[in-house]
Design a protein around this nucleic acid. Sequence first.
DNA 1: GACCAGGCACATC
DNA 2: GATGTGCATGGT
Length: 227
Amino acid sequence: MDRGKRLLRLYETLERFFGDLHWWPGETPFEVAVGAILTQNTNWANVEKAIGQLKAQGVLEPRALYGLDDEVLADLIRPSGYFRVKTKRLKAFLEVLCDDFRGDLGLMLSGELPQARQRLLGISGIGEETADSMLLYAGGRPVFVIDAYTRRILTRHGIIDGKPTYGDIQCLFMNHVPRDAGLYNQYHAMIVETGKRYCRTEPRCGDCPLRKDCGTGRGREDRDGPR
DNA sequence: GACCAGGCACATC
DNA sequence: GATGTGCATGGT
């Protein structure tokens, strides 16, 4: 079976298992954008604590956050780790958002997709995954997000091998899965849920909906007992 | 106490 | 262009 069909079958298997996740990692687009930076190389639970502190201080809003003293901001986002670098990255993002787009995130994420993406990539601290997360989850743009879970699951299923670039994997999805933001949202959400529950660096394949096609071999053991 | 988690920039070769 | 390193917290 070719890789395009396998991607579609993967989607169907996951959707049968999870149903419609309506996944949205934040209450507002701005919260999603901030979360996208805070979650870099960090457990989401720690990000939620940081976001909670920003909310509690009433500063989860572009201009309020931009106006915050660096040390105060760093202290608020401390639970998310890398708080000094993330303070710089948030400020760099907020500088463009507030100075060039009047604090209007919808405006910043609108326009031609390649240009909007380049705009984000031009900001220090925003790489491909962070840019695409913002575009998809905060902007509702049809861009597939590739993260560590996506790479890991595809590798373990033999759909990719070697060291494909971010763009290689993204093209694979976007050339075979219809370009629809709702679909990409749901697909990536299911990948992240699967990754969190079953596909850590050390696999926990027990009830994983994908275990029978998984190359770790653990799915077989879970079904058939040890060999 | 070691290891891991939804990256990125920068230096070096 | 590939590879290595610093950044830092909180859960398991």
